[in-house]
Simulated scan of single mutants.
Amino acid sequence: MSDQNEPAKGTASQVAGAVQAHEYSWRAPSPPHIHVPPVPEKTAVVLPASNPTIDEADIDDEETVKVLRHITGGKFEVHVSDWTYEYRRKFQPILPFLYLGPFTSAKDVAALTKEGITMLLVIRDTRSAMCGFLSGKKIADTLGIHHAAIDVDGNAQLISYGFPKATRIINGHLVMKYKVLPQSQAMSDEHPPIIPQTCGKVLVFCESGNERSAAVVAAYLMAMYEVNVITAIQYLQTQRFCIAFDDGLKNLLLNYQQILEARRGVLGAQRTNSQTVSQLPTVLSKAVTKRRIDDVDKEDYDMSGMDDPDDVARFENRGSFAPFHNE
Rank of each mutant, 00 (worst) to 15 (best):
P323N: 09
D297F: 15
I293F: 13
E56Q: 11
D108V: 05
K290L: 15
G116N: 04
G136I: 03
Y99P: 04
T272R: 08
P196C: 06
D295W: 10
Y85F: 11
A156Q: 08
F241N: 07
T43F: 10
L121Y: 01
Y24T: 11
A214D: 00
G17P: 01
R314E: 09
A21F: 11
I123L: 05
M130V: 14
M224G: 01
P182S: 08
A18W: 10
V202W: 02
V180K: 13
V312A: 13
Q237L: 04
V122H: 01
S160P: 02
F76Q: 05
I195H: 01
A313Y: 04
M303G: 12
D151I: 02
V296H: 12
K250Y: 01
G248K: 08
L121N: 01
D108L: 05
V288I: 15
A186N: 06
E261W: 10
R263P: 03
V80Y: 08
R292H: 15
R89H: 15
E86C: 06
G209D: 01
S320F: 15
I94H: 03
R271Q: 14
L236Q: 00
Y99Q: 07
R271V: 12
P193D: 07
S285M: 07
H325N: 12
P182I: 04
T113A: 13
K9Q: 13
V80R: 00
E62R: 11
D294A: 13
D125T: 01
A223G: 09
N273V: 09
D189L: 14
H146R: 10
I139G: 06
A8I: 13
M130G: 12
I230F: 05
K177E: 15
R69W: 02
P7C: 06
Y24M: 10
T84S: 09
M224A: 04
A313S: 10
N273T: 14
S160K: 08
F97A: 00
K9W: 14
V46D: 08
G248E: 12
E190L: 12
N155G: 05
E63L: 14
R124T: 07
V45N: 00
L158Q: 04
V19T: 15
E56I: 08
K42S: 14
I293L: 15
F103Q: 06
A215R: 01
D247C: 07
A106C: 08
G144V: 07
T198G: 06
T231Y: 03
